[in-house]
Amino acid sequence: MSTPTTSLKPSAWRYVPLVLVALIFVFPLEFMIMSSLKPSEQLLADSNSFRAFLPVGDISLNNYVAAFARAPVALFLFNSVFITATTVALALFFCSVAAFSFVFLQWRGRDTIMTVLLTTLVIPIEIIAVPLLLLVNQLPWVGLHGFSTGWLNSYQVQIIPFSADALTVYLFVQYFKDLPKELIEAARIEGASWWQIYYKVIMPLAGPVTATAAILKFLAMYNQFLWPLMVTQAEEYRPVMVGLQYFFQLNIAWGEVMAYLTLITVPVLIFYLLLQRAFIASIASTGIKG
């Protein structure tokens, strides 16, 4: 009887630090969700004690009702999910194709362009925001209302400038480099075109890096604030992060802020949970960290 006991003890102890680390990450979410259920006065009073993490006191969904009354929350959520999902899909395609070209095709200037592309990794959006604003303000567009000039107040202005980026290309390049070259050679011998190799051979093997790139891109896009603030004067195109500012009035209703934050965290959690296995596999195999 003593053998099982001794073998259980070490593994149980191993969980103690893991649980403690997990709690560090869970507590802010717990605080946010519990606070979203309390009136602002109680929320503030509880914030200095452990009650902040417990569903105690005057619990209700009133903050959620008030949040929907204060701002068009559903519209902001739709905008963010639409903009983010479209951008992620476009970025995965464009960047994987570009990476495929950089790794498997031979063309003049390839290494130089790759180097130039990588240097853009160190340029933050704040540096290029104003020139980019001036550029998109002059671009033509053909939409449902016919031809127009200037992309301000639109979805495309929040999607197209971010539909390819150096980090995502770099992730795919690093992953593709580790794939066996024999696969490509075999496919070429069989008469496959480059497009068929990309679509039928390489991308089916690129699940982990696709998940990693998707999550990183999703977070970057979903958390965008400065750019949408600059290019959306009309409420109908604003995303959730600009919408968050609706809740910061002279007298801040913290309960409503927490309710709004809880609501806008849901899409992020769902997206991560859907891709977490592939994400973890990618980290384990490539050492890439988000």
Partner: peptide, 13 residues
């Protein structure tokens, strides 16, 4: 309408 905290930046842009 604009949220107050982001209004000045919106006008500048």
């Amino acid at each position: 309408q604009f949220p107050q905290a982001a209004y000045n930046d919106s006008v500048t842009a």
